[in-house]
Design a protein around this nucleic acid. Structure first.
Lengths: 187, 187
DNA sequence: GGTAGATATCTTGATGTCGAGATACTTGGG
DNA sequence: CCCAAGTATCTCGACATCAAGATATCTACC
């Protein structure tokens, strides 16, 4: 008999009811529904990838709340922290920001415009390439990024309390294997 | 000495170079940058959650490509398959669709309008509640959903080829623990 | 050094999403 | 029976994003 992931989950519940309780989630219900409606298909991939998508969606919402405490939108955080991470003098080209934030060039132009309007970054001409621009964090932008990062980490640490340190390491490793192919090819 | 996730990764590379090669990803670089710039902070949570967000982002793009082969947008797929999963007669209220797709009511109204325009769903009055509406899949909508699902599963199975079946099960289980709290409370 | 093709950024128009509020109906207490 | 509060859906305006194309500049090769 072949065990599916769902079976494994139930096994945990049945055999060790007091020490290992695994809660159902929306994806369990989704997969069960597909197995009922389309028993001819192998929907195993959804067990992983639908959870990734849904978790990301929930995280987006939680992050929006966390950043609001610091008066920042998620997209503002993404850009400011990319610059912050670059280290002094906290500047990157729009093109470098694109690859880090996974948005299109039009979007980035718009973001830089708005952040400039708020005084969090400023545009400087690239001295080595007259097509180019350097986006630099202002002092205010740097402070905001630092504060928001600390807030984010506190929130996320709380979410991860569900898992032991070892489990977090395992999870990070498995996710890395899935993400790496995307991050290491041109596509 | 305490090992961080990054150390564990490097350990793999150093000790078993031929059998276990772990590729770096963008999050490794991101975490390394934070450790250099903010050595005072514990950025461990990013190892998991930043990977979830970035992977989801990549998946969105890949899914967009996969669905385009069937002439569907990702949002259309989400709605059509929610109805398909409901089983015959393939109908749900807009409210039920909201909770499954994690969008707001205004968005769902708009989606139903456009799907109706394309002839993939139709609105019926709810016989038990005159405020209510039932959204029902047309035959064409059902066929499209079935075709697109098969295509999606093929694509996703390919992405997951990086992992063994056992690893996929582990990953699904760990993700479930993180998602379940979101899915099982009102929030 | 001149030119074709690559590259960096910005512009534009269309579109999907959100949030807040409006509307219509239902429910439960008095 | 009536009314207040709750619920289901829709409307509307603001806004962020994207894709495609425009512009300016660089690079490499002849």
């Amino acid at each position: 008999m072949r065990l599916t992931f769902l079976d494994v989950k139930r096994l945990h519940i049945d055999t060790t009811p007091d020490t290992l309780i695994v809660m159902e989630d929306e994806v369990d219900r989704l997969v069960a529904a597909w197995r009922r409606e389309r028993p001819d298909l192998d929907v195993e991939p959804l067990e992983v990838l639908s959870r990734v998508s849904r978790l990301a969606r929930h995280l987006d919402r939680a992050r929006r709340t966390a950043f609001a405490e610091h008066g920042l939108e998620p997209w503002e955080f993404d850009v400011l922290t990319a610059l912050r991470r670059a280290g002094s003098p906290y500047q990157l080209s729009p093109g470098q920001l694109l690859t880090q934030t996974l948005v299109t060039s039009g979007t980035m132009t718009n973001r830089i415009d708005r952040l400039t309007g708020k005084g969090l970054v400023k545009r400087l001409p690239d001295p080595d390439d007259r097509r180019g621009v350097l986006v630099r964090l202002t002092d205010d932008g740097r402070d905001r990024a630092d504060q928001a990062l600390a807030g984010l980490l506190a929130h996320e640490r709380a979410l991860l309390a569900e898992l032991s340190a070892g489990q977090q390491g395992e999870l990070a490793g498995l996710l890395r294997q899935l993400v790496a192919p995307f991050d290491n090819v041109p596509g």
